[in-house]
Nucleic acid binder design. Sequence first.
DNA 1: CAATACTTGACTAAAATACTTGGTTTATTT
DNA 2: AAATAAACCAAGTATTTTAGTCAAGTATTG
Lengths: 158, 158
Amino acid sequence: MRLTTKGRYAVTAMLDLAFHSQTKPVTLTDIATRQTISLSYLEQLFARMRKAGMVKGVRGPGGGYTLSRDAYQINIAEIIEAVDEPVDSTKCGGKSNCHNDQPCLTHDLWMGLSEQIRAYLKEISLGQLLERDLVSEVAMRQGEQVIEMPVRHERMSA
Amino acid sequence: MRLTTKGRYAVTAMLDLAFHSQTKPVTLTDIATRQTISLSYLEQLFARMRKAGMVKGVRGPGGGYTLSRDAYQINIAEIIEAVDEPVDSTKCGGKSNCHNDQPCLTHDLWMGLSEQIRAYLKEISLGQLLERDLVSEVAMRQGEQVIEMPVRHERMSA
DNA sequence: CAATACTTGACTAAAATACTTGGTTTATTT
DNA sequence: AAATAAACCAAGTATTTTAGTCAAGTATTG
């Protein structure tokens, strides 16, 4: 399992989607502007995630993307795996024919490590993340000046 | 914390070093050939690790590198951190001024995740890794056919 | 039918990764 | 002292990945 910015983009986008798609589909354009990620890059990421069966695209006006499962049934590991294509980190093409002169010493070591991290991220669902984020959002807002009252509900969509 | 192949190279090399430098310094050339990593790339990685104070270079013939601490006092997280320079993954330049219009939703989420992984890798020492690897080495050898038969191994590379 | 918005693919720019070349210093060995 | 073996150093190059762009499609709703 690799941890790069690409995976973070994907998780961010999914989190945004989970948050805003409660009632209706969310367009990538919206996510792009909210999260300041380029639209076409998002398109690429979502194409992969759609193939992985975690989001559904709804075409036509009023369309966009929705989660294809409950947010609590989508874990972080699969999001990351969906977007970054697997590199065989083994240098011996998967088959462990590499212990005669002990090249790739780290073979199963790194695999093990990587697997641990994957397991960890697999236990965290998008739903949990959303909860956690909302909690910290609230905490933040409470620490903030809340005084500016009137109209403001667009804060969400802005 | 980022997990990339670069970090894996570093860990691999350090593991090799820990394993072979019990008695005398190990040359990068040796590590390079054993682990099939380019010599100069290793030089770059070791330059960083030397600056981080985890290895010592010994010049002149018969020289090479040694660990500057006991293998049990070097953890995996610091190896990785030594070689890949930090990117601010926050998009808001470290200072968390990013909750007004909620860009970077994942801000502290990802930081948290990343921190968890770092903590995990920090608890694993080079020494432990070495032990573990030696154990599995032995296990492999015991499990193997030591007879090495006729020719048919090409199925693997096909 | 027309507008909207997803789909697809090819392409480009920038960054990170991996490697190369060609040195210099330092210490050992002959 | 000379040759040698190694670390150390500094550019530069190639490859891959990341991120973003563009444009021609296709499906859906109104």
